[in-house]
C-alpha cells in the first residue's frame, strides 16, 4: 500500500496462461464460488485476497483439480490451461498436477530425507534418466528454492528436522523440482515468522522469472509486495480483479476499498 512505485511499473501485455470462465463450485448444497472469471498471466504473480471463507482457497484448488479429492465438491465452468480444458475427460488430473504445482499453508515435508523430498516428484514422473541427473535436478530445485546453501551438507537429514521457514522453502523446492508451469501457493507464509516470510516472498519474486505464480494470502501488505495482479474475493464472488497497484490505490468497487482499509473482513 505504501509502495506507490508499483503504479509506475511498466505494464506489459503477457500471454494468458490459465483462463477461467463462469466458474462455480458447490460443496454439497453450499454454493462456494459464484460466476468467477479470472485470467492468470504467464510469468506473473497473481494474488487472491479476501476475508476468511470467501472462497479464494477453494478457487485455487480448482486450478489443479485438488478439489477432486473432496467427495462432496462439485466444479462447473471452464478452466483452460494453454487453451485446453483441464476438466475435460481426457485430461488426467495426476498429470495436470505435475504441470500445476501446489504449495500448502502448513509446511508438509514428507518424513523422508531432504534429498528424497525434492526427488519425490522427479522420480514419480521419471524426469531423470540416472542418479547424476537426479542429483542435478535436486540441486537446481534447492538453489531456486533458496535453500541449497543451508542444506547442501545434510541432504540425508530428515526434512521434518528443518525449521518452519526452511521446511516451507523445501516444499517450494519440492514443487518446482517437477518443472511446473504454474505454481499455486495457499497462504504459504501464514505459519512462518517475519524473517522466513521475507525469504519466501523474495523467492516468489524470483520464481516469477520462469513460472506463473498464484498466491492466496491474508496479508494485504504481502499481496502488494509480491504480486502484479490482484483478485479480491468476497462471499464467493470475485469483486474486483486488476493490476495490484490499481486495486490498492484506486479500487473501483466500494467493497474492495472497505476491505483493504480494514472496514470489512
Amino acid at each position: 500500500m505504501n509502495d506507490m512505485s508499483r503504479l509506475e511499473r511498466v505494464v506489459e501485455t503477457k500471454n494468458i496462461k490459465m483462463e477461467c470462465r463462469d466458474c462455480q463450485v458447490y460443496y454439497g448444497e453450499t454454493h462456494a464460488i459464484k460466476d468467477v472469471n479470472v485470467d492468470i498471466e504467464e510469468k506473473t504473480v497473481t494474488a487472491f485476497i479476501g476475508p476468511s471463507g470467501c472462497g479464494k482457497s477453494t478457487f485455487l484448488r480448482c486450478l489443479n483439480r485438488m478439489n477432486d479429492t473432496i467427495a462432496t465438491a462439485r466444479v462447473e465452468g471452464s478452466f483452460r490451461l494453454d487453451g485446453e480444458d483441464i476438466y475435460d475427460r481426457r485430461v488426467d488430473p495426476v498429470q495436470l498436477r505435475a504441470k500445476v504445482g501446489m504449495v500448502f499453508q502448513k509446511p508438509n515435508p514428507f518424513p523422508k530425507s531432504i534429498y528424497d523430498n525434492v526427488a519425490y516428484g522427479p522420480r514419480i514422473h521419471g524426469l531423470a534418466r540416472n542418479k547424476a541427473e537426479l542429483d542435478e535436478i535436486v540441486e537446481k530445485a534447492l538453489r531456486r528454492g533458496a535453500l541449497w546453501n543451508e542444506v547442501k551438507d545434510r541432504l540425508d537429514a530428515p526434512g521434518t528436522g528443518l525449521s518452519g521457514g526452511q521446511q516451507q522453502r523445501l516444499c517450494i523446492a519440492r514443487a518446482i523440482a517437477t518443472e511446473p508451469e504454474v505454481l499455486l501457493m495457499d497462504e504459504p507464509c501464514s505459519a512462518l515468522d517475519p524473517i522466513a516470510t521475507a525469504q519466501v516472498e523474495e523467492l516468489i519474486d524470483e520464481l516469477r522469472q520462469n513460472y506463473s505464480v498464484v498466491i492466496v494470502t491474508h496479508s494485504m501488505q504481502q499481496a502488494a509486495r509480491v504480486s502484479q495482479k490482484t483478485a479480491f474475493f468476497h462471499l464467493g464472488n470475485l469483486v474486483e480483479f486488476g493490476e495490484t497497484g490499481q486495486i490498492f490505490t484506486n479500487p473501483v468497487d466500494p467493497r474492495t476499498e472497505s476491505y483493504i482499509t480494514g472496514r470489512i473482513g
Binding site: Q95, R97, M102, V103, G121, H125
Partner: peptide, 27 residues
Amino acid sequence: VPQSMRDGSLGLGATRSETVRQVVLPA
C-alpha cells in the same frame, strides 16, 4: 498420518497408490 502428507503428494502429481506406497506407508 496427517492429511497434509497426502495433499502434498497428490499436489505433486502422484497417483493415489503412489501416495500410499511412497508417503503414507513409510510414514
